[in-house]
Amino acid sequence: MSHPPSSRERTHSPAPDAGRIKVGVSDLSVATGGETLTTSGLGSCVAVALVDRSAGVRGLLHAMLPNGTGSDTGIERPGKYVDTGIETLIAELEDAGASAGRLEARVAGGAEMLDLTDAVGPRNVARAEQCLDAAGIPVVERAVGDGVGRTVRFRADGRLVVRAADGFERTL
């Protein structure tokens, strides 16, 4: 068996099957069928869920830090940052048939988990609101802030189910 070098670069993305796509930290994913997009353990990180209902296209981002612009580590993982993550997610949604003008957003996470880490959670949320506003995408629902971790499921119907660490669940 031979493995010749090739210029084709594979991108690593979660396999969409069994109706569930896991989105990791610093990651983003798009669904065009009935899959549920999930991401877990949102502490100070923020989840941005975008849907174009008429095109049936959804996307979920799990970003860790507010600003990619001018960062030390470069942008090889755009999903690491709220700003580059939202920009990339919108582009991928459009590639999948969505129209930016029809997108609506739900935002979750951005908790103030620790005093040690100077309010990165609220800054993530503020940056998300700012970037979505600049892109003309309305934020229709949010479950953000406080000091509580969250896990989210972005359903095929475009609703975002947010489960808090204490088991309390809300559907946005």
Binding site: C45, M64, M113, V120, G121, G149
Partner: peptide
């Protein structure tokens, strides 16, 4: 010490975020 009591991954993600400003 700072006490934490939450989803495991949510307790550590702010620490990871802080370090991630300079390293992946």
């Amino acid at each position: 010490p700072e006490f934490v009591h939450d989803i495991g991954s949510a307790t550590i993600s702010p620490l990871v975020a802080k370090l991630s400003r300079r390293q992946d």
